[in-house]
Nucleic acid binder design. Structure first.
Length: 629
DNA sequence: AACGGAATGC
DNA sequence: GCATTCCGTT
């Protein structure tokens, strides 16, 4: 809904709203928080701490004051500010770190996102070179947001002179300021260098290797000026790794990189699990101060390149569909030496990516594939709409509708009631732990599965055949996760998918069950799900079953791995309730798939180009933010 | 401290 | 749509 239909797909609102949303030109609180976090000068006030994405407000009053200044709301106080932060819970932008005062955590997964193809975990690149700084085990965030530069546009980088540097810097700097300050964007320059020191290079690198989003973060982040890095890269010197991006190396081998599309980082991976290193907050993806997503640009971009669409599928959820995508063993290969995984978090969750150990819980899936997925991607359930309450009637129109149409398309889901769009959003979820509990454990039964997941999927995949096309680009898609309900993914115009782009193919993204001609690759992927697929692409097994299996698998994994977002679960639960069966099972969260690097399709030049453009646009947008009070 | 409903403003 | 403000509850 929100997004214009032209392209067909939409991202969650917040995903793109950078600092300002169309309607409101003002900076959003989460952006502001990120700004503060990236500035050294505010370390005493607010700082990254703990898990990836976790930050603590050391001086609530000061933060409130700063925020008030920025918004020209002198009466602002922590109580009010915190209320605003709480609203993010449902949006899944943030969640509270329980037990720690003034500590919140960004859901970068969702935010960022997106599509990272995967990253070869196995390969060298993926390997983290440096240990992750993350001290605390991360609990949930798995994904480092990355930004592969290459992806975007190898050729033209943002970095290129004008764009990046100037933009990045600007962005970086001015933001925090208060009204007076804020307006002036330029103030300190420090950013380039110092700004993100905290994080240190370590994490970034690590990440980079992992993901390679097409548009994703990269674009986003870059725009913002990466962590200190933005400025740095001289135009000429671009390494693949791209300084800006958090990822040290790009996964892609060349420009094209491995995967064209990407997965979404959003998936939640448990930090421990997939990443050898966790991203440190400091480095965090968000380094750039602002994230901005320009919807318009995105759209264009996407439109231009269908691929993007495909990417969408790549998103975690998408993976679901493409079971085949396997990541080459993600075991953290290198990780071992440096960092003992244990370090991360012994705690429950690190879901072991390793296939090897996965419990044998799932028998079902056996056939599906051998590797359970190294990565887990947790699909997130659509965020609940806040309005459950009133919504009863209203149903939060947006969400529902969108889902129905878009998601349904994929066919996967929708068997049952494609017609009626289910409404997903039930309520907000908060991050609770309950999540896990809530989760259904037994997936075994079909129905159950269906119910729960159904919602999720539905949203994800459009029922209509065009599904594949619909997707959005991964990056966003990831983001979208949360909001699926809302409109995250709109159905796109669905480009007729006819020919998949190489990228896609490579990626194996293709989801739609009903697809016509799949490429071998795709088929292969599918096979994952469906055991009995005929070469022709025909699936012998009913979707449902397949899903179930998958679901089961996921669940297991999750169980192990853990709860990522409690919220998600909650959401699901809610959904269930809200929507009874009709949907297909899916797991929003549960699924985690591992993407594999196999894809080898180089992205089409055009695409890249587009991305670069996008990035630029994004950057510009971000610049716009600061207005005076 | 944290949560979240409700009303309200922009 | 995104807070801001108020406020009762946990």
């Amino acid at each position: 809904m929100k997004t214009p239909g032209d392209t067909g797909f939409a991202f969650p609102d917040w995903a793109y709203k950078p600092e300002s949303s169309p309607g409101s030109r003002q900076i959003q609180l989460w952006h502001f928080i990120l700004e503060l976090l990236r500035k050294e000068e505010y370390q005493e006030v607010i700082a990254w701490q703990g898990d990836y994405g976790e930050f603590v407000i050391k001086d609530p009053d000061e933060v409130a004051r700063l925020w008030g200044a920025r918004k020209c709301k002198p009466q602002m106080n922590y109580d009010k500010l915190s209320r605003a932060l709480r609203y993010y819970y449902n949006k899944r932008i943030l969640h509270k770190t329980k037990g720690k005062r003034f500590t919140y955590k960004f859901n970068f997964n969702k935010l960022v996102l997106v599509n990272y193809p995967f990253i070869d975990m196995g390969s060298a690149r993926g390997v983290p070179q440096s240990a992750p700084p993350v001290p605390t085990g991360g609990s949930h965030f798995r994904f480092p947001p990355s930004t592969p530069s290459e992806v975007l546009s190898p050729s033209e980088d943002l970095r290129s002179p004008g764009v990046f540097s100037s933009v990045g810097r600007r962005l970086a700097r001015g933001s925090v300021s208060d009204c007076s300050d804020g307006t002036s964007t330029n103030s300190e320059l420090e950013e380039g260098v110092g700004v993100e020191d905290r994080g240190g290079p370590g994490p970034e690198r690590a990440f980079r290797g992992l993901l390679h989003p097409r548009l994703s973060h990269d674009s986003l982040f870059r725009a913002y000026g990466g962590p200190g890095g933005l400025g740095r890269p001289p135009p000429g010197h671009r390494v693949h790794g791209d300084p800006l991006s958090p990822f040290p190396v790009s996964p892609l081998p060349g420009p094209g990189g491995l995967l064209g599309p990407t997965l979404s980082p959003a998936l939640s991976m448990t930090p421990g699990s997939h990443l050898p290193y966790t991203p440190s907050p400091s480095l965090s993806p968000m380094l750039g101060s602002h994230f901005s997503f320009n919807p318009e640009d995105m759209k264009r971009y996407l439109q231009a390149h269908h691929q993007s669409v495909y990417n969408y599928h790549l998103s975690p959820r998408a993976f679901f569909h493409y079971p085949n995508i396997v990541v080459p063993q993600p075991h953290r290969p290198s990780a071992a030496p440096d960092k003992p995984p244990a370090a991360h978090h012994p705690s429950h969750h690190h879901a072991p990516l390793m296939p090897t150990h996965s419990h044998s819980l799932h028998h079902h899936q056996g056939e599906e594939h051998q590797h359970p997925s190294p990565f887990k991607f947790k699909l997130q359930p659509p965020p609940l709409g806040r309005k459950q309450r009133d919504g009863s009637a209203s149903s939060t129109g947006g969400s529902t509708s969108s889902m129905g149409s878009s998601y349904a398309a994929s066919g996967l889901l929708t068997n049952s009631s494609s017609a009626g769009p289910p409404k997903i959003k039930v309520e907000p979820i908060s991050d609770m732990e309950s999540e896990e509990e809530v989760e259904v454990t037994d997936i075994s039964e079909e129905e159950e599965l269906l119910d729960e997941e159904g919602d999720v999927f539905a949203p994800l995949y459009p029922t209509n055949g065009s599904a594949p096309s619909t997707v959005t680009n991964g990056a966003l898609g990831a983001i979208a996760e949360d909001d699926l309900d809302e409109d995250v993914f709109k159905t796109p115009a669905a480009p007729p998918m006819g020919p998949l782009t190489p990228t896609l193919l490579g990626l194996k993204c293709e989801p739609a069950p009903p697809m016509g001609p799949l490429t071998p690759t795709l088929q292969g992927l599918k096979s994952d799900l469906a055991p009995p697929i005929s070469p022709g692409g025909t699936l012998c097994i009913p979707l449902k079953l397949r899903f179930k299996r998958r679901w089961s698998e996921d669940q297991k994994m999750e169980a192990d791995g853990e709860r990522e977002d409690a919220e998600d679960k909650k959401v699901r639960a809610e959904k269930d309730e809200a929507e009874p069966a009709g949907r297909e099972p899916e797991n929003g969260e549960g699924l985690r798939k591992s993407p594999s690097l196999n894809l080898g399709c180089p992205p089409p030049p055009a695409q890249r180009r587009a991305s670069s453009e996008l990035q630029r646009a994004t950057a510009q947008l971000s610049l716009e933010n600061h207005g005076a009070c």
